[in-house]
Structure formats: structure tokens, C-alpha cells
Nucleic acid binder design. Structure first.
Length: 646
RNA sequence: GGCGGUGUAGCUCAGUGGUCAGAGCAUCCGGUUCAUACCCGGGGGGUCGGCGGUUCAAAUCCGCCCGCCGCUACCA
């Protein structure tokens, strides 16, 4: 029987935006793991792809004036181009618009329906069209805004016939499984998060949506499609050909490693997904790995705050390549190295061009590149470019072997920062060794045998590095092998061997792979670049008539007290002259009650009342928002309470 | 607020009871010159977030507090 293939996946990405450094990181980790596993002799099946069945996609296509299928085709190819440029070698680019996928999803649906793990019911609740999610809870009832912090759009009340996945029935099994198999969810902090998420109680999830035009139709229903997340998760299964007969291919199934950002782990990959597999009586993935996020200057990457160029891997590569005068494919490898050397695992990590450049110079130009270059230069200068001695001193050989072993152990655990750090021990050891042996002095003394023996350490180090670094920097490693006049070798077992360069082997002339980055001349007080003003499309504008519907009035705070049942809210009593109202405001973190009494403030007066933690609020306090901190607005001079604002 | 993390040199981080607490980068000094102004050595720089406790011995275990992060829950 054939041995099990190493099956590794990234999430399939939403096609409504091009890749950024976040999706780039997940995909890069997957590529490096794939290359490493291949180097270990495994057959690898590496899946990435695009999630195309979201109703939002159809809407975006319509807006762009395109046919939805043409639109997703275009976006899918944008992703494929990105991955090609970053030298990502996947085996399958999965797309959920594939008919075999859709058929297989329907098969899952029918199978679970027959078993009772999917049941028909009625869904009533608040729905975010943009996020394609129903939200529940007191907060939603009150504010009717999407709970997704990035979205916060108004929700729509929907009551619809729906199908549910009986997730609640799997909560105990899931919890037990996770506890019995700690390596199922890594790293540990994610595992704890998932366990507490489950402990809070898993609700059955609606897995159908009313929608006729785009998505995977629910079997036997008109105008109903499968919920896009449920549809998307199943891609990992349908990509293996499961849909053909409903039997999992034992060569491929289950996945060995499923990578993703931490945000989509608890709610989807660690609950809905394994519960679905349990319901299908299929083995669960061996491991779900949720890495942390890249931050920009300590803040979460976001479309509004992060300058576009910083988040686009291709622009970063292009700029580095231009600044350093290195080939673009090597700049790609430099970015790959940086991302994996500093990859966020437990917590989030800052991403910065400065840090990338620091790694480039210190690790790649000064260490890796320079070691190869000085070694080859001396070989040509003293030994006519030939290997004259193929015997490593035992001490240095031991260092190499230990580093190769430890690097492999770290890569096996997806610990690239540790693995790369260990690999660099080899470089450090050779630089030390050169310093103690001073082959340039040996040459002056005519001890060419000594020179040959010393330089052999650098040659072997370069050969070994060209193998063990190739999961991370494939193009660079190929170039190193080329300068050593060796065929490009990626098999790890060849790195474990010593003395791989025979006496008499002729080396090629060295060329710097990573030319050193020169410190940028201080830009002569470049004027602060203003981001181009975004032109608001007309549909975000409102008419004067719409504005006239909004009644803003001046009110005086006559009393203020903490909300009896909430710690971020204050309960205010305000006077509008002829009328007194109670207003609940979320300003307890920025204001104390006594700071407010007597003040004039602006309120939105014709807002529907809402109950907030048991207190009816009859209006909304207006305030400027500085990172969530409220700065209250007041009239320029005292005016009669209740004065209207226009 | 609840739950889970985290806080160690200017920066990024190792270090889960036991020599004066470590590495890389940065910085300063020295050496070297084969090499991409590179490499090698050395120095400076830390009350290991704070306060208590356990112990012969704590960055490491326990308790409380503070800061930051994540999930979650009331910022109309």
C-alpha cells in the first residue's frame, strides 16, 4: 500500500480583496512546510485556493459591472499570480465554484440531513448582509449593528426557513477530543481559546441562506444556498475526490496540517469543521495551526490605517529589489526569510520594512552571502578554484550535524524562527573557524594543504545550507548550489551526509547573491506625504432632505450616575428645556459622572429609544471618537437648553 | 466584567527552582584583511512589570495588583 501523503492546507481566501502580508504569511508557512516535507522524502499534497461562493461576491461583481463567474475567475488568477511571484508551489488551487465541489457539498448536506445532524427549522434574527452572518445577543437586539468590529453595518431583521447543523450535540465530543489530543490545536494559546469558546456553549448554526443567484444550492429547495463558511470548509474534503463516492481516500485523508490565521480558528476550523467531519464519521485533521497576525506599528492591519504599499507583498519585494540592487527572485526569498524568521506564533508581531532590511543586511548579506563569497574567493585565489582537501575536522563536522538535526526538528514543529536561528550556527561556526585558522596567513606561509582543509569547512557549510534553507529560500539555494557548481539538491538526507564535495571538484566564480543594502541617505526633509483624498462615491452621500430628518439638539446634563448593570455605561438625565430625558452613554471609561453634571452637550434627539442593560435610552450623546475615547461636543457659547442644531 | 495569554538589555526574543541572567541586532572600543566597510574579540547597557509568600535557593512555583494582547460580554 502506498504511504500516506502529507496533506497540508491554507484556508481558501475570500476573493473580494487581493492578498496581503497576512494571507501571504499563511501561504508561505504552508509552502515552506511542504518543501521541507518533500525534502524529507514525503509525497506532499498542498492545497490553497479561493472561496468564491459568497453572495457578497455576486454583489461585488455586479458593482464592477461584471458577470460573477468572470469576476471570480479574474480574482482567482490574481491570487495565483501572487503565489507564483512568491514562489509558492501548491499542488491544487481549489475553487469553490467548481461543480464537483458543489456536488460534494450537496452530498455532505444530504448525508447529514438523513442522519439528523442537519435539521430544518426557522431562523429569526439579525443578519449582516456584508458579513453573511446572523448575530445574536442582547447587544445586537439593542444596537442592530454588525458585531464584526471591522464592519459595524446596520443589521437586517430576517425570519426564514433554514437548515441547522446540530453543533451543540458535538460540544462534549469536541472538548474531549481536544483534551485527549493536545497537538490537534496549536499553539497552546489557541487551544485554550477554543476550549473556552466551547465551554461557553455551542449553538446550532444555520447553514443555509435565502439566495437564488450565487452559491451552492440547497438540495430540494428553491432560492436557498449553503452558508458560505460551511461550503468553504468542505473544500478540504472535496478536493481529495471524496465527492465521487463518499469514501475518503486513505492516501490523502486526513489533512496532516491545516494552517490559518488565529481569527478563523475557534468559530470555524476548530468547531464547525471537526463537528462536520465527526458527523460524516471521517477522521479529523492531525493538526490545526493558528498563527498570529502581523501588526503595523503595533496596530492590527486594516484597510483604513495601513498604507497600502506596506501590506502588499509584491510591492515590498519590488522595493527591496530596487533598493538593494538584487534580483527580484532573491528579494522574494529575503521576504520569505524575514517572514518565517519572525513569524508570529503565540502572539502578534510587528511587520516592518526596517526589520526586513535589518534581516537582509545582517543575516543574508553579511552572514549567508558573505560566507559563500569569501570562501569561493579564497578558493579561487589560493587553490585555483578547486577542492583540494575533502576532510572536515571532527569538531566542525559535529557542529554542522547538530545544526542540521536541530533545524529539522524545529521545521517539523512549524517553528521556523527557531529552526533558522539554529541553521545560522553553521555560519557562525565557520566564521569563527576561519578566524582561528587564518587561511590567508596559511597561504602566505605556503601551507596550501592547510588552506584547503580550512576552506573545505566553508564549502561544506554552503552546500549544507543550500539544502536545509531551500524550504525557505528556494531561489537563493539554487543559486548557491550553482556557484558551488553542484546540481540543485533539496533532499535533506544529503545535508546529513558530510564531505559531499569531492577532491578535484571545480567551483564557479562567486557573485554576491544579496548585495548589501546601503543606508538610505536621509531624505531631505521630505514633506509629509498626504494620502490622496479618497473620493466618496455618490452612494455614500446623503441628500439635504435626508439630513433634515436628523434632529440634533443642545441638552444640559442635570444628573449623571453609573449604570446599575454595566461598567462602561453612564446613565444621564438631560434637560431639553421643556422636556427631560434619560440617555445611556458609553463614556464611563472617559468621564466620571461629576464631570458631566451641568454641562451642555449635543444629542441626537429623534433616535428610536433602546434598552441598554435594562435602562431605556432616549437619545444618543454626540462625541468625537479618538480611538474609542469619547470627546464630548458642546456649543461654542451657552445657549438655551433644547436649542436645535442644523 | 469573565476566560486565556503576556510583561526579561535600546529593539526582537531564548531561558519553567540551583554557577556572577543569556542570544541576535543596534551602539562603543580593539583586532584582522580572504570577503559584500565583511569577519573575530571585548565593553557598556537589565531592581527578569510591582508587592507579598513558599523554599537552603525563584525570572522560573503560589497570591494580589498594574500594563498590554486575544476571545467573550453591556460603550444608542
Amino acid at each position: 500500500m502506498m504511504s500516506k501523503t502529507f496533506y497540508i492546507t491554507t484556508p481558501i481566501y475570500y476573493v473580494n480583496d487581493k492578498p496581503h502580508v497576512g494571507t501571504g504569511l499563511t501561504t508561505l508557512i504552508a509552502d515552506a512546510v511542504s518543501r521541507f516535507q518533500r525534502a524529507q522524502g514525503k509525497t506532499v499534497f498542498f492545497l490553497t485556493g479561493t472561496d468564491e461562493n459568497a453572495p457578497k461576491v455576486a454583489a461585488a461583481a455586479q458593482k464592477a459591472g461584471k458577470d460573477p463567474q468572470a469576476f471570480v475567475d479574474e480574482m482567482a488568477s490574481v491570487f495565483e499570480r501572487y503565489w507564483q511571484t512568491l514562489n509558492i508551489r501548491y499542488d491544487i488551487f481549489m475553487r469553490t465554484t467548481r461543480t464537483d465541489h458543489k456536488r460534494a457539498v450537496q452530498r455532505v448536506f444530504q448525508q447529514l440531513l438523513a442522519k439528523g445532524d442537519v435539521y430544518a427549522g426557522e431562523y429569526e434574527g439579525w443578519y449582516c448582509i456584508s458579513c453573511e452572518t446572523f448575530w445574536t445577543g442582547a447587544k445586537v437586539e439593542e444596537e442592530r449593528l454588525c458585531l464584526n468590529a471591522e464592519c459595524r453595518k446596520p443589521l437586517e431583521h430576517r425570519k426564514e426557513h433554514s437548515y441547522f447543523l446540530r453543533l451543540s450535540a458535538y460540544a462534549d465530543r469536541l472538548r474531549d477530543y481536544i483534551q485527549a489530543n493536545p497537538s490537534f490545536i496549536e499553539p497552546e494559546t489557541r487551544r485554550n481559546e477554543v476550549l473556552s469558546f466551547i465551554a461557553e456553549g455551542l449553538q446550532d448554526v444555520a447553514i443555509s441562506r435565502l439566495e437564488a443567484n450565487w452559491g451552492t444550492p440547497v438540495p430540494g429547495e428553491d432560492n436557498m444556498v449553503i452558508y458560505v463558511w460551511f461550503d468553504a470548509l468542505i473544500n478540504y474534503l472535496t478536493a481529495t475526490g471524496w465527492g465521487e463516492n463518499g469514501v475518503a481516500d486513505p492516501i490523502l485523508w486526513p489533512p496532516d496540517l491545516q494552517l490559518m490565521g488565529k481569527d478563523i480558528l475557534p468559530r470555524f476550523h476548530a468547531t464547525i469543521w471537526p463537528a462536520t467531519l465527526m458527523a460524516l464519521e471521517l477522521p479529523l485533521p492531525k493538526q490545526l495551526f493558528g498563527h498570529g497576525w502581523w501588526l503595523f506599528k503595533g496596530e492590527k492591519i486594516s484597510k483604513s490605517k495601513t498604507p497600502g504599499g506596506l501590506a502588499d507583498p509584491l510591492l515590498i519585494v519590488r522595493e527591496l529589489s530596487a533598493d538593494a540592487q538584487c534580483e527580484e527572485r532573491f528579494a522574494v526569498d529575503a521576504l520569505r526569510y524575514y517572514m518565517l524568521r519572525e513569524m508570529p506564533t503565540q502572539s502578534d508581531t510587528n511587520f516592518s520594512v526596517e526589520a526586513l532590511e535589518a534581516r537582509y543586511n545582517a543575516d543574508l548579506a553579511n552572514d549567508l552571502g558573505n560566507l559563500l563569497h569569501r570562501t569561493l574567493s579564497m578558493t579561487h585565489r589560493y587553490l585555483e578554484g578547486q577542492v583540494t582537501n575533502a576532510e572536515l575536522e571532527p569538531e566542525i563536522a559535529a557542529v554542522f550535524q547538530k545544526a542540521v538535526r536541530e533545524t529539522a526538528a524545529a521545521f517539523h514543529e512549524t517553528q521556523f524562527p527557531a529552526g533558522l536561528q539554529t541553521a545560522w550556527e553553521i555560519i557562525r561556526a565557520v566564521n569563527h573557524y576561519y578566524d582561528s585558522r587564518a587561511p590567508w596567513n596559511l597561504a602566505k606561509q605556503g601551507d596550501l594543504a592547510g588552506v584547503g582543509q580550512t576552506l573545505y569547512a566553508g564549502l561544506e557549510a554552503s552546500r549544507i545550507l543550500s539544502i536545509i534553507l531551500s524550504p525557505v529560500m528556494p531561489s537563493v539555494c539554487e543559486a548557491i548550489a550553482g556557484q558551488l557548481n553542484l546540481p540543485y539538491e533539496t533532499r535533506w538526507s544529503e545535508a546529513e551526509k558530510l564531505n559531499g564535495l569531492p577532491v578535484g571538484h571545480a567551483l564557479n566564480q562567486p557573485t554576491p547573491v544579496f548585495p548589501r543594502l546601503q543606508p538610505k541617505a536621509e531624505a531631505p526633509a521630505a514633506p509629509e506625504k498626504k494620502p490622496p483624498q479618497e473620493v466618496k462615491p455618490m452612494d455614500e452621500m446623503i441628500s439635504i432632505d435626508e439630513f433634515k430628518k436628523i434632529k440634533i439638539r443642545v441638552a444640559r446634563v442635570t444628573a449623571a450616575e453609573p449604570h446599575p448593570n454595566a461598567n462602561k455605561l453612564l446613565k444621564l438625565t438631560v434637560s431639553l428645556g421643556d422636556e427631560t430625558r434619560t440617555i445611556v452613554a458609553g463614556i464611563a471609561e472617559s468621564h466620571t459622572p461629576d464631570q458631566l453634571v451641568g454641562r451642555q452637550v449635543l444629542i441626537l434627539a429623534n433616535l428610536q429609544p433602546a434598552t441598554l442593560r435594562g435602562v431605556v435610552s432616549e437619545g444618543m450623546l454626540l462625541a468625537a471618537d479618538i480611538d474609542g475615547k469619547a470627546i464630548l461636543l458642546s456649543p461654542e457659547t451657552e445657549v438655551p437648553d433644547g436649542t436645535g442644531v442644523r
